[in-house]
Design a protein around this nucleic acid. Structure first.
Lengths: 354, 354
DNA sequence: CTGAAAGCGCTAACAG
DNA sequence: CTGTTAGCGCTTTCAG
């Protein structure tokens, strides 16, 4: 991380040193609505109407106003509008970890959808700290008109307690029964069932599960589904959610003698893939591997990873729809549970005959 | 993407249907500073002082105020503060594509740094459209106190033209000579030089370059450095910046007969890796492959990818430092060019003897 | 169709 | 140390 600094002193540039961090109400020398009104010889109300495209303005006046605005480089103050209007034109997203492809997916979906609707997006990351998450959520919410919250670890109770102050908001990747906000979740059990069916269909009878973070809702559901599966022997291996954790787990995998490993997610599965490869075990020849989530990389591992695909950015887009409805006073209050889809690629194959 | 909707009608929830999307200045029934003042039997100024932790307040009064605020569930209006203070407490980031690990890196770095300083982060994505980018940048800037802009494709002239209205802001992944804002960039030429030295050291004399998007500044610099390299034969293969483009380019690679391929970035390199693998060509046995950027996945490809590491999130953190300085009227106006570091992993090896 | 006036909720001198 | 007094810049009835 060596940083050769060129230290090229550059001119102070046109814009005079701004005191933005400190005081000085005015963003610079930027024009106000009053100045425009004055210049155009009309009232502020008229300028306001023109700027907001009210059709009830004399075209001639409108033109004059627009000209004046143009000439003065006028740009309405967002803060002033927010105050007068009572809304910010912004929505926020709070996630545990921006490095996680799962959340990047909803970020993208939400960003696009909100952008298309002319809304800005505020994002905050809690670094996996559930308490921090709720604080940030409150914070974020106060700075915007609505919130999308991904908080897989925060306790149900805490969320319920905050629900009123967070509204309008929607929960993603999680469902809380009888909760005061719509939630968009994934049917993890169904996904696991598909995996198990696929694997048993190939003759596998002993599966090793690379478990995700203990507190994670997704991990609980996936694990539960696995335990509920019949006709297989299950070995649970503590693992995590990152590449290196999956990588490290490779050893335990070969030791436990399972013929197939189902990873908590694609990252641990990929990690396991390379770990296995390093130990000279063939995938899927010797052991089959599956992931979960279908992150972009999953199809480029060697071999391409069989995984369960979840509609990450679709979740973001849907979250926007729900939020939008809520913001308009509509109920929007129904939950959606997405049925993930099994993607069979090359990391799974018939159990080795011996 | 089938979505089984549970349609669980849920109660309308405590908070009455809000008209947030429409009018209604008041965020709900939330208390105002006046109400708190009244309840505490003091002036609004005093409440304001207490809320902002002014030390010059009688502890007794302060306590009363805090109690009242608590009782009323008072939360200061962000919009009103912004208007009065002349700043929003938010900074924004505009990037071409949130799916790109490069920008995800600065997003994370910036998010963390800004968060630590108690600032919120607004993000906007232009979908690779340079013109859209400048519009978004303006938009974003007006909604915040400062801007970090990643705009690898927008023409220099356009950026210069907008500089004044964008300030304070900093440019990342790009450097414009004599520009009105600090820029944080990467020394692509140095990175390529390292790659070439590494490869020639292994005996490679014929390199194939998987070219990035034509308009991209990074691609130009990397390509130029490659062309300037001596002692090698260079075959330029049009490619792109995504996995599948790299994947598709595998064919051309084997056809051109190069003994090593240098990818524009890690994604195309990974794509090439799997493409090569599918065709039965050994890496690094038959051909060596290098990437650029060092995305998280690069160390988990098969074989792990030799690449050039650039400090993505460090760039974000640095961007915050610069921006912060600018926002406080300090110059902050020097550029930094990061020297990337070659990471030799297993995708490169000695040229095959024949 | 346009202007006047009254806020939106908070902060910041400036007096007391 | 606390209250009074002006705004910050825009929107929005309500008259005209």
């Amino acid at each position: 991380m060596s940083t050769g600094e060129d230290d090229q002193d550059q001119e102070a540039q046109a814009s005079p040193a701004r005191q933005a961090g400190r005081r000085g109400p005015r963003p610079a020398g930027s024009a106000t609505i009053s100045r425009v009104a004055e210049a155009a010889g009309v009232s502020r109300a008229t300028v306001s109407r023109v700027m907001n495209g009210s059709p009830t303005v004399n075209p001639e006046l409108a033109a004059r106003v627009r000209a004046a605005a143009e000439a003065l480089d006028y740009e309405p103050s967002v803060a002033a509008r927010s105050l007068a209007l009572g809304r910010t034109g912004t929505v926020s997203l709070v996630v545990p970890d921006l490095a996680n492809p799962l959340f990047q997916g909803v970020l993208r979906g939400l960003s696009q959808a909100a952008g298309k609707a002319g809304r800005r997006l505020l994002v905050a990351e809690s670094n996996e700290d559930p308490e921090e998450e709720t604080v940030l959520a409150l914070e974020a919410r106060r700075n915007s008109d609505g919130l999308v919250l991904a908080s897989p670890r925060a306790p149900d109770a805490r969320l319920c307690e905050l629900a009123a102050r967070l509204a309008p908001f929607v929960l993603v990747y999680r469902e809380i029964p009888g909760f005061g906000a719509p939630s968009l979740s994934v049917d993890n059990a169904a996904g696991i069932d598909d995996v198990v069916a696929h694997l048993t269909g190939l003759g596998h009878r002993h599966l090793a599960y690379l478990a995700g973070p203990p507190g994670s809702a997704a991990n609980c559901e996936r694990l539960a589904a696995l335990r509920a599966a019949t006709g297989i022997r299950l070995t649970e291996l503590p693992c995590g959610s990152m590449f290196d954790e999956g990588h490290a787990a490779a050893r335990a995998v070969v030791e436990c003698g399972a013929s197939a490993v189902v990873g908590f997610n694609d990252m641990v599965a990929s990690g396991a893939l390379t770990g296995l490869h390093e130990r000279g075990v063939q995938v899927p020849g010797d052991v089959s591997v599956t992931g979960f989530d279908d992150i972009p990389f999953a199809r480029y591992t060697t071999p391409p990873l069989t995984t369960v695909s979840i509609p990450k950015s679709e979740l973001g887009a849907q979250a926007w729809e729900r939020l939008w409805a809520l913001m308009n006073g509509e109920s929007g209050g129904y939950n959606a549970r997405f049925r993930p889809r099994l993607l069979v690629r090359d990391s799974t194959g018939p159990v080795r005959s011996y």
